[in-house]
Computed example of a mutant assay.
Amino acid sequence: MSKVLIVDPTLCTGCHRCEMWCSLTKYGEINPSRSNVYVIRREPGVDVPVICIHCGLCIDVCPLGALKRDRTTDAVVVDSDLCSGCGACVKVCPYGVLRIDEEMDIAAKCDLCSGSPACADHCPHGAIRYEDVRKAAAKRRELWAMAQAGKIRS
């Protein structure tokens, strides 16, 4: 069964636990600046988690082949032994979720924590969930329609 991360910004309270758990899981420290998930404050009381959707656009632009798709989780992952930190992947990422880690000088991004994403496991409100791809598609359609309705009313 294939799973994907899904974000419901209407449930996000801006607690930043996803960022803290991500950096703790990946780097052994609570440091949101090293997180691979980002909570963006749009206005007071409106926070939106931004995550990698593993679209794969970064794979083809890497000159060293350091980005690959994990066959088990379907996540796009960085091979730290091959990555030079050139930033080509950062330039192409449409969501701005790829970054060059300043301490390691290589590309850093969500790798779905090998199939058990810490951000989803520790989100107390369910704003980030790791769900079956069939459920996720329906939820994404619903969220997109809600966002478009909000734009029409504005």
Rank of each mutant, 00 (worst) to 15 (best):
residue 154 S to Y: 09
residue 68 K to E: 11
residue 46 V to M: 04
residue 96 G to Q: 11
residue 154 S to R: 14
residue 19 E to W: 10
residue 32 P to L: 06
residue 7 V to I: 06
residue 11 L to C: 05
residue 94 P to I: 13
residue 6 I to M: 02
residue 148 Q to E: 12
residue 117 P to C: 10
residue 28 G to I: 10
residue 130 Y to C: 03
residue 58 C to I: 01
residue 65 G to K: 07
residue 64 L to I: 05
residue 72 T to H: 03
residue 32 P to D: 03
residue 108 A to T: 11
residue 51 I to H: 04
residue 88 A to Y: 08
residue 111 D to G: 09
residue 141 R to Q: 11
residue 53 I to T: 10
residue 144 W to S: 01
residue 78 V to N: 00
residue 58 C to D: 01
residue 33 S to F: 15
residue 65 G to R: 06
residue 56 G to S: 12
residue 85 G to C: 01
residue 60 D to E: 02
residue 137 A to P: 00
residue 15 C to G: 06
residue 9 P to L: 10
residue 97 V to T: 15
residue 143 L to D: 14
residue 154 S to L: 09
residue 59 I to S: 09
residue 62 C to T: 13
residue 7 V to W: 02
residue 105 D to K: 14
residue 120 A to D: 08
residue 115 G to M: 09
residue 148 Q to W: 08
residue 48 V to H: 12
residue 98 L to V: 04
residue 112 L to C: 14
residue 8 D to I: 12
residue 14 G to N: 07
residue 128 I to R: 02
residue 49 P to D: 01
residue 73 T to H: 06
residue 117 P to E: 06
residue 24 L to T: 02
residue 70 D to I: 15
residue 24 L to Q: 05
residue 19 E to N: 04
residue 108 A to F: 07
residue 93 C to D: 12
residue 47 D to E: 06
residue 154 S to G: 13
residue 107 A to D: 02
residue 76 V to Y: 08
residue 24 L to C: 02
residue 151 K to I: 01
residue 141 R to P: 09
residue 116 S to P: 07
